[in-house]
């Protein structure tokens, strides 16, 4: 009864030819659309990378199962070493390793690599103190363990950065809120722009669409090229943003941090480039499909 029904997918070549052609026919509008979508994706991606860096920092801070505690400088070495049993007696302490201030200084120098001659002069007036490396059983009890350690008489200080970690966590949630707001706002702007470009394309071809419907083209077939046009706009923007992000992150980002006397290093771009690419590509496709489909739906009802 229905002869010659062609699959929507068998027409992919046609959609691509027409859809990509449409991009060029609507040159200025396409250019404007790609620019706006790219700007939106760039802002979104920047915030996500920022959030990612903070996450990694927080993880590093929290993942360490080791706390270094420094002994009161008034303690003799014997008194200091004697604290080991007190420390070991605490809950959640797996092990406590005594490190003399000389060892600590050496380690510190070794960690610096070259340019240590300035510090060599300090060797005889060693500014660091004897210490214990305390290994925890359960890192989630970090702050409780720290409190208990600080309660031991003779322990004066620690390297623990609970405060920094907490600051980062709250910064992270601020960035999260900003990111989500931006993603929603900029996503809406991108959808609007794609939808307008596709609307333009549809109106320019209203006659053709009318005739296609008259001769029995399916809605899917009529939609194809416009959906492709939307997807191409989104994906082209995503490609530009990926390249831009790569450059900005590696050069500008590194320089900025250096300028601020960085307390931490940027996570290397290479570690998340595939994730970023997939995310941008996905966002481009979703925006492209979404923007074109909502427009066509309204248009095709007539």
């Amino acid at each position: 009864m229905k002869k010659g029904r062609a699959s929507v997918f068998s027409q992919l070549g046609y959609y691509i030819k027409e859809g990509v052609g449409g991009i060029f026919v609507h040159g200025f509008m396409s250019f404007a659309a790609i620019t706006v979508i790219a700007a939106c994706l760039l802002v979104t991606a920047t915030f996500m990378l920022l959030a990612h860096n903070i996450d990694v920092q927080i993880e590093e801070l929290q993942d360490s199962n080791e706390i270094v505690v420094y002994i009161d400088s008034g303690f003799t070495r014997e008194q200091a070493q004697a604290l080991q049993s007190d420390i070991m007696a605490l809950d959640n302490v797996e092990n406590a390793i005594f490190v003399t201030k000389e060892e600590l200084f050496e380690n510190f120098l070794a960690g610096l690599g070259e340019d240590t001659h300035v510090l060599e002069e300090l060797r005889n007036d060693n500014p660091v103190r004897d210490s214990f490396r305390v290994i925890m059983k359960d890192i989630s009890l970090h702050s409780e363990t720290l409190k208990a350690l600080m309660g031991v008489a003779g322990i004066a200080d620690s390297n623990s950065d609970v405060e920094l970690s907490e600051k980062l966590v709250s910064l992270r949630s601020v960035i999260n809120t900003i990111s989500i707001t931006l993603i929603i706002m900029l996503g809406a702007v991108s959808l609007f722009i794609i939808s307008n470009t596709v609307k333009l394309a549809l109106h320019a071809r209203a006659d053709e669409i009318g005739i296609m419907k008259m001769v029995g083209a399916t809605n899917g077939f009529i939609r194809g090229p416009f959906v492709v046009e939307g997807i191409v706009l989104g994906v082209v923007a995503a490609v530009f943003v990926f390249a831009a992000q790569w450059a900005v992150y590696n050069y500008l980002g590194a320089q900025l941090l250096e300028g601020f006397g960085a307390i931490f290093e940027l996570v290397p771009f290479e570690t998340f480039r595939y994730k970023l690419a997939a995310m941008l590509f996905g966002a481009g496709v979703v925006l492209g499909v979404g923007g074109s489909v909502i427009t066509i739906r309204r248009f095709m009802r007539v």
């Binding site: 699959s7 068998s10 027409q11 046609y14 006659d207 009318g210 296609m212 001769v215 029995g216 009529i222």
Partner: peptide, 22 residues
């Protein structure tokens, strides 16, 4: 008539074959 102004005679006819997936 309802022909498409920016398509040639040939294209006007070929177009409707393509429209049904020929």
């Amino acid at each position: 008539f309802r022909l498409i102004a920016d398509k040639t005679v040939y294209e006007n006819v070929a177009f409707v074959m393509r429209a049904i997936g020929a």
